[in-house]
Design a binder for these strands. Sequence first.
DNA 1: TTCAGATGTTACATTTTCGTCGCAAGACTG
DNA 2: CAGTCTTGCGACGAAAATGTAACATCTGAA
Lengths: 230, 230
Amino acid sequence: MAKTAPPRVLLVEDEPAQRAVLAYNLEAEGFDVIQADNGEDALLLVAEEAPDIIILDWMMPKLSGIEVCRRLKMRPETRGIPIIMLSARAEEVDRIRGLETGADDYVVKPYSVLELMARARAQLRRVRPSTAGVMLEYEDIRLDPESHRAYRSEKVLKLGPTEFKLLVTLMERPGRVFSREQLLDLVWGRDIYVDTRTVDVHVGRLRKSLMQFGGTDPVRTVRGAGYALG
Amino acid sequence: MAKTAPPRVLLVEDEPAQRAVLAYNLEAEGFDVIQADNGEDALLLVAEEAPDIIILDWMMPKLSGIEVCRRLKMRPETRGIPIIMLSARAEEVDRIRGLETGADDYVVKPYSVLELMARARAQLRRVRPSTAGVMLEYEDIRLDPESHRAYRSEKVLKLGPTEFKLLVTLMERPGRVFSREQLLDLVWGRDIYVDTRTVDVHVGRLRKSLMQFGGTDPVRTVRGAGYALG
DNA sequence: TTCAGATGTTACATTTTCGTCGCAAGACTG
DNA sequence: CAGTCTTGCGACGAAAATGTAACATCTGAA
């Protein structure tokens, strides 16, 4: 399996502070970030840098995000690049949709950065499924998303579907602390309503499953914050 | 595992998304993929890269697939390379055929990816018989896609057509989990509408067929995800 | 140490998912 | 045309997974 270059994201946002925050987080996620603060530059950079995905603010000087999106979706050579639109209010999403700009996803401000990351990854997976085929590893735990199998010290772990997804999420960023809300978002899905305590129970189940052959507990509880691996 | 170098396929398709999907699948199949998004580049790449097989979209900017095909089949040094043409509609196939482009095979969009892979392998076998006799193997199951026969421990298995395709799909990537939707896509074909539960039934039938002489069940059910071999 | 809030654990009712059977419609064969 | 094989799907029991409440335990601050 070939080692793929880090995915390149073009971040188009005119507000410097917001752009900085996003850029920081995207880089932390392992993206190569290219930045632009207006639509014109964005179009140029798409041609020059061939990004894998574009995050595009709606309101911008010179060329609005809508216009940029429409132009990109018109040209065959750029049509395939996923575009996520950022918009200030929920009503605008409907309006943008109505304009048939062809954006692949919409995120409403104020958005959860984590959610935006998740959606970016989702879009990327859609176009570049080559992200699959990697083996997630943390200490003596190995996890193969493709074969849906998890091992600890060469032994196959028996995990329920939710435990598996939970472990995938945690292993994608070992050390990072996920709040219960974030985990509900990432593991259960954005819209479903379940009690946050449910996370505790499943973390418990995951712990038990991870230690079914002995070994130490790799899941760290961060009081008042959430859970993390290691 | 073959000791020969991986076969090189030149994929010529102007639509980036489709090209990405195909490239991914071809790579997963063990091909070395060279990509082009227009006819001119394609001709250059044929000279530079000497691919073993070419998959060529019909409609393309600059130089159409038909034209590329015709030129390649004119030159003696490239005539031997098998060409599979992709065309948007069934009627076009007749038309292309009428143009005597000399393509070796035609696949109509929307095609099943599995079907395209199978045809690519078939063409390849025709030219590079060293690859012939590719026998898919997993544990004591052997499967010859060409003679359409499957064995388990030297005994010939009796399989229905759908069971056979299902087994081919699973055996091409042992261990990988296929969702019901993916299997419908790969085995039944892209556009057909059948219930996903139908997959369950056929997996059941395949299981029974695989164990008609005894032995263990090689098909693994992954709850909430799909099925895999081993 | 004491205590309140946060977290771990268990049990259980409910929901979801799966395996299999049977049947009717369609495809194919001779 | 008759007969066989294949297929899709509804149905139903079994098994797994899930969410939640209740209770036990732990942590950190005063």
